[in-house]
Each structure stands twice: as structure tokens, then as C-alpha cells.
Design a binder for these strands. Structure first.
Lengths: 321, 321
DNA sequence: ATGAAAGCGCTAACAT
DNA sequence: ATGTTAGCGCTTTCAT
């Protein structure tokens, strides 16, 4: 494990200059038998070019940086897979860091991505990282914010107000009238979903929903029991992250779905079909693809791509109409 | 978006040499007020060091490469999170690539990781990548294989035979005697689990299990219906990836769990508790942590870390004893 | 304590 | 078609 084989070693072995080796490796004009000798040397020496050094010239790597708050969440996981797909199709790797919803780490990781001279950056972080994202953009690194619209940066978002509306409309169609909501925090997405829900309910002449906040899964049980004191005929969960906990709290209370209470949640997940749970889905995989495409295409002006939610009715809210 | 600020720009602005700037950045002996001037320049110029260039000297980056077959699988996802955790604690980033179970991509991605001069590599790939992993090891890049023991490389594996035994023992304890198994492919882990299961069943004087193979979720329905023709009183699923499909196939057949048939599956998952599904779990998060630790510690001789499975009984196989 | 200068492995003019 | 020679941005002797 001494020094690694360099382009110079290959050049010596093949009896040519490093420039020639570089040419055969990257496709310049080289005579056929010269190229053959070089390839032979490359093979015998097991030469593997140093991508780091290459990137020095272009000033950037072929890596797409992704800073994610929570890999565990089904939405972010699918997003990540979509990003990976497009990255792979564009000879890029994905450099990834999880922040565990910790603002300090968000800032630190975004900075690290900048130091790595990533080709582009995709973040699902909060406002704390916007300043750096903007300066990165100024330096020619396309930055895409997911789930939050930010002036001056690209963004990929769900039409959250529409999602809220869609939830309300489905519940109304299923004859529900008293809605309890499990929300999580004050991120724009949550606020907008709540607003859409509230509006559409009001529009249908129904009472305003009771909204309780649960930051983590542990807080859901208490939140749901608060909700249940109001005897709602429908419970809405505004984030896929808390679906299991919400479902558990409901069934633990001895309630049947949809008999005693309707359950409607955000984000598609693997078990939804098996359990007959109705969801309002985001095209998360496609959103990941689009985010990565934005990095690859690097449009000059900020583009905001808004995606439409989809209702996948499976009976957990009863029959519609 | 012209050229980026370099260490030279900072040096000029602070009226010192680049060597001095480098020293204050990396902690050498510098007079206090000189350092202050440098920091000021760093701040005003918004200097962000180029990590790529830095890595040229050490010959490697501070990135841990991870080549994963299937991010979607709960096991690999948790593994990934464990890796990320340790990487973060060691000032490393995770460079990630998904192979979608495609051998060609496995080879290509591992090669790319080598080109990126990753600090270490963690793979969940097949034998196709072993040759390169070995040469990387020879070059001083620690490589860890997950879920497969390989001579000459570090590995992190579950005691799969024990897992199979554990499954059989639980079923026996629950009074089940006719076992149907959904397996997936011929990877060592699957083969060993099957062997353990078979042995323990034989040891208890029970008939050999019927084993059907399902490569993907789509094939599960057919596989399970084959199984059901033998009227088993227990169905075992040997990979977490196919749990949903197996559960779906069983319930679609009108069977109740555990009344008509016991269901036992590999790998813990978020919905298991809510659904009362008994699983034999792998410590996947911890396995990820250990894999990353192996990269960080880079022991000279290959180490094989074997992890014990855990039974999490939740009633889907009936009462034990 | 600080600077000058020599690389690190590679690409990209510029020569030949 | 191939070699020579500058660098790329940074670290690291070696001087001063």
C-alpha cells in the first residue's frame, strides 16, 4: 500500500508522455498502437485515475450534494431515490448527509458540501442554510430547496394548500363533519396544508378542525387523545412521518377505522394498500428526479416546480358520496 | 460567478503568504494579530476552502463510499443511517450509490468510489465487486462487505443460521408444525436462514418446510398461493423486503393471522408493532455503525463481525408454549 | 513567526 | 500525433 499508481507511472510503462496517457483516457487523437500500449500499461498497473485531482481543473466535482433532515421519513427516502436515479444517469454520485432535524448540523453540512465543490446541492433544510445556498448559487453551484419556496433559489414543492383542500373534500364526500388534525411543527408545508384544510372545511359549512401539534412520534399518543376528547369523526395526519403513531393511537383507543373514526394521512407508504389506508400522496420520487434535473440543467433563473397531490382512496374514510 | 476565492486571495487581502493562511486555517504557530487579520480576510471574502484540493496530499478524501443494492429495503435503510451517524461523528461524508440489484452497476459504482479515493468503502454487493475491493484494500482503502463473509475483507453479518433456527423454534413453541417459506434468491443469507430453519424443524421432529422462491414483490402472490396448497399452519418470510407482499397475499386469501396461519418474518419495520407481526430482527442500525467504524479504524487484518438476531414476539404466530 | 518554493496528480495550451 | 510546460488550489519542507 505504498503510493498509488499515477498517470506518470502509466506513461513511463508505456514509454509515452503523461499528456498522451491523458489523451487516450479522455479521448483525444492518438495513434492506434500507441493507445494500445497505453491501455496495456493501464491494465497491468491497475491504474485508477484520481477523480479528485481531475475536479481541480473544472473547479467542481461530479457529485450532487444532498442534505436531508430525515432519511427515515418515507417522503425523503423516495426523494433520495429519485435523486440517485438522475445522478446515476448523469455520471454523478450522490453525497449525502442526514441532519436529524438539527439546525446546527444543517448549516455545517451545507458548508461541507460547498467545500466539496459539489456540482449542485439539494436541501430539505430550514432557512438557516439559505444564505449559504445563495452564495453557492452566486458561485455557480445550483441549489435546489425541497418542500419550501425560497426567493432566488430553485425549489421543488408540493401544492400544499391543494393537499389540505383535497383532504377536506374527501372527508366531506365521505360524510364526515368533525375533523381532528395531527400536525407537526410550523414549517410552511404544515401551515399550508392546515390552511387548505381549514378553508375547504369552512367552504363546506363545517366547523373548523381542531389542530394539535406533535413534534415526534412519542408525542402523538397524547396529541391524539386530546383530539379524541372532542369526539371527531375523522382524524387527519399531516405528515407521513407520524402515520404509524397516529394509527396506533387510534386503534389503541379501541376505535375502528373507518367505523368509529376516519383516518386520512399524507404521503404514500408501503403498507397503505395492505391496510386500506387512504392517503394524499406526493410524487416524491418524481420530485427527487426533478430536483436532480435542476442541478444537472442548472437554469440561470430560479425555477419553482410545484407538484400536484393525489388522493388515493382506500376506504379508511368510508365510502365517498 | 467568476473564479472562486482562493487561499491566495485571502493571503493578498491579509498581506501575508499563503503558507501563513494555511497555518491559521489548520492550526499552526501564528502570531495572534496575524491570525486575526487572516480570519478577517477569510470572513469578508467568504473564503471556503476546497476540500478536493486538500485531499490531493493525503491521497484520499474524507468520504465514506457506500454502494447499496436497495435503499428501499428497511434493512439497508437502517444500515445506511447507522453509517451516516458514524461518518458524521468522524467528520466524514457519505457518498452513496444505489445499484438496483444490477451487477453491472455494482462494478461500475465500486470503481467510481475508488476513483473518488474514498476513505473507505462499504458494500452490500455480490461477488462481482470483490476483486476490486481487494485491490482497494491493498491500496490502503478499508473495505467492508455487509451481509456476506468474504476472505480478505472486513465483513458485517447476521448469524443467519441462528436466525433460521430462531424462527423454527418460535414456531414450534407456538405449536405450529407445517411450515411454508417465502425465500428470495440464492444469496448466502437466504440459504443459511433456510438451512437453520430446516435443521431446527428436523431437530424437533417436524416435516421439512416447503420453500418457494420470489425474486420480487410481484412474484409473491403466486409463491404464497403455491405454499397455501400445502395447507401450512405457518408462513415464514425470509426477507423484510417481501413482508408487505406476503402479508397481503395471506389476507387476500381470506386467512386470519394467527388464527388460520402464523406469520413470521425477517427484519423489524415501523408497522410491525402496530400490526402485531412477530419478526426476527437484525440490529441493522448497529451493523451500519460497526461497518463505518471498521472504515474509520481500518484494522490491518480482516475482521468479521457477526451479529445475533433477536426475536420480537408480537402474536402473529399465536401464543408460545 | 513567516515566507519562498517545491510539489500533489492531472489537464490543457502551446510546441514540435 | 506526441511531448513540454504551465498551472489548478493547497500543504509542507526548508529557509530566514
Amino acid at each position: 500500500m505504498g503510493k498509488r499508481t499515477t498517470i506518470g507511472d502509466v506513461a513511463t510503462a508505456a514509454g509515452v508522455s503523461v499528456a498522451t496517457v491523458s489523451r487516450v483516457l479522455n479521448g483525444g487523437a492518438v495513434k492506434e498502437d500507441t493507445a494500445a500500449r497505453v491501455w496495456e500499461a493501464v491494465t497491468t498497473l491497475e491504474y485508477t485515475p484520481n477523480a479528485l485531482t481531475k475536479s481541480i481543473f473544472s473547479g467542481r466535482s461530479n457529485t450532487i450534494g444532498v442534505v436531508i433532515r430525515d432519511l427515515n421519513s418515507p417522503f425523503y427516502l423516495d426523494l433520495m431515490r429519485g435523486i440517485d436515479e438522475v445522478a446515476g444517469a448523469n455520471d454523478s454520485l450522490v453525497m449525502f448527509a442526514n441532519t436529524y432535524r438539527h439546525p446546527d448540523r444543517e448549516v455545517a453540512h451545507v458548508r461541507t458540501m460547498d467545500e466539496q465543490r459539489v456540482r449542485g446541492l439539494i436541501v430539505t433544510t430550514g432557512e438557516t442554510t439559505d444564505a449559504r445556498s445563495r452564495s453557492m448559487t452566486a458561485n455557480g453551484t445550483p441549489c435546489v430547496v425541497v418542500a419550501r419556496a425560497v426567493a432566488g433559489l430553485h425549489s421543488v414543492i408540493l401544492d400544499n394548500v391543494a393537499a389540505g383542500r383535497m383532504m377536506a373534500e374527501h372527508l366531506v364526500a365521505c360524510g364526515r363533519s368533525s375533523v381532528g388534525v395531527v400536525a407537526s411543527g410550523q414549517r410552511p408545508s404544515q401551515v399550508e396544508r392546515t390552511a387548505g384544510l381549514r378553508d375547504a372545511l369552512a367552504g363546506a359549512g363545517l366547523p373548523a378542525p381542531v389542530v394539535v401539534d406533535a413534534g415526534t412520534e412519542d408525542e402523538v399518543a397524547a396529541a391524539v387523545s386530546t383530539l379524541l376528547r372532542g369526539r371527531p369523526d375523522a382524524v387527519v395526519c399531516l405528515t407521513g412521518r407520524l402515520t404509524v403513531a397516529t394509527y396506533t393511537a387510534l386503534t389503541a383507543a379501541g376505535l375502528t377505522i373507518p367505523g368509529d373514526v376516519a383516518l386520512l394521512t399524507m404521503d404514500e407508504f408501503a403498507w397503505a394498500a395492505a391496510l386500506g389506508i387512504t392517503v394524499v400522496a406526493q410524487p416524491s420520487y418524481e420530485m427527487g428526479r426533478q430536483a436532480a434535473s435542476l442541478v444537472v440543467e442548472a437554469p440561470a433563473d430560479p425555477v419553482h416546480r410545484v407538484f400536484a397531490p393525489t388522493l388515493v382512496a382506500r376506504g379508511s374514510c368510508g365510502e365517498a358520496r
